[in-house]
Structure formats: structure tokens, C-alpha cells
Design a protein around this nucleic acid. Structure first.
Length: 159
DNA sequence: GCCAACGTTGGC
DNA sequence: GCCAACGTTGGC
């Protein structure tokens, strides 16, 4: 089974790379995702050991900050059952949960942040979902080739 | 099941 | 702050 790769978007104001590093075991639940396609990826397709590009959105500039990995596979997002949580979903029942998540663990920070603008200009990433306009999905598959290019790009000096 | 209205995302 | 893209809602 070949390892797969993903990109997870997060707003650094809400939960950023430094928050993941400060988490116990540098690991966190990826909670609060309320989109069915993203849910399906986490519930059905993300496997232990899969690589994750940790992407900061809604900041200046938006960028990939680090590399993480999946350490626990799809299970129900507990925040959906918590009335005090902003992610509470009153229509979801514990016997038939609507929302799933995975746990991710920080692997390492990139040598330098890779801005969206730079990724857009990088050869080989033209069809990466992230660089497509209007791509809002917060959990995206990344191809092995794209992963290699991104990891190698971070080792090069900033343009 | 269609689709218009509306809300959210998120880069710019 | 703007606005394009896109998901969701709800009337029919």
C-alpha cells in the first residue's frame, strides 16, 4: 500500500503550526471540519502514516508551514456532540455520527514557509488543487509528485 | 429534483 | 473591503 499525501488548511489565528507543536505529543485532532467531501477523505481515505502538508490560510501571505502525518484514522469528531462547541451539530446522533476526523502529528517545520504565490509559479504544480482558483476544500489530496516538488522546493533558497 | 437566494471561504 | 467560487437551504 503506497503512502498517500494530503494538504490540510487551517487559519493560524485559530489553530496554527505552533499550536500543533505545543499540543501533547505534537498531535491534535483535526476537528471542526463540516464539509462532506473533506469528511469523506478523513473518514475513508486518510491512513496512518500518510503525509500532510500543513497549510496556513487567511493570513499574509498564505503558505505551507510544515509537514505532519496521520497518526489516527477516521473516528467521530467529538465536538459535534458538544453543545458548548462552536462545531456542535444538534442533528448528529452518537449512534450515527455525521462528522469524522483524523489525528495528525507534527513531523517537522519546513526549512522556509512556501507561499501560495511561489507554489503557483513552481513548475510541476500547475494542477495542484491548492493553486486552482476557487479551491476552498480544507482537506485536499496531494499527489506523490506534488509532494516531492514541495518538499524539495523548501530546501532551496527563497526566490 | 430543480434552482434561486443566501452564506461562507479565502485570495487579493 | 471586494468579490468569485461554491456549498447549503428551502420553496415549489
Amino acid at each position: 500500500m503506497p503512502r498517500r499525501y494530503w494538504l490540510l488548511k487551517t487559519e493560524p489565528e485559530t489553530f496554527g503550526w505552533d499550536d500543533l507543536i505545543r499540543s501533547k505529543d505534537r498531535t491534535s485532532m483535526w476537528d471542526g471540519v463540516r464539509n462532506y467531501r473533506a469528511r469523506n477523505y478523513m473518514r475513508d481515505e486518510m491512513k496512518i502514516g500518510d503525509g500532510v502538508l500543513f497549510y496556513h490560510s487567511n493570513c499574509k501571505p498564505p503558505h505551507v508551514a510544515g509537514i505532519a502525518r496521520v497518526v489516527r484514522e477516521g473516528y467521530p469528531d467529538p465536538t459535534q456532540f458538544d453543545p458548548a462547541s462552536p462545531y456542535h451539530d444538534p442533528e448528529s446522533r452518537p449512534e450515527k455520527p455525521r462528522w469524522y476526523l483524523v489525528d495528525v502529528e507534527a513531523v517537522r517545520k519546513l526549512e522556509r514557509p512556501l507561499s501560495l504565490a511561489e507554489l503557483k509559479e513552481t513548475e510541476g504544480l500547475e494542477s495542484m488543487k491548492l493553486v486552482k482558483r476557487g479551491m476552498r476544500l480544507s482537506v485536499q489530496p496531494v499527489t506523490g509528485e506534488e509532494w516531492k516538488i514541495v518538499v524539495a522546493l523548501a530546501k532551496k533558497p527563497a526566490p
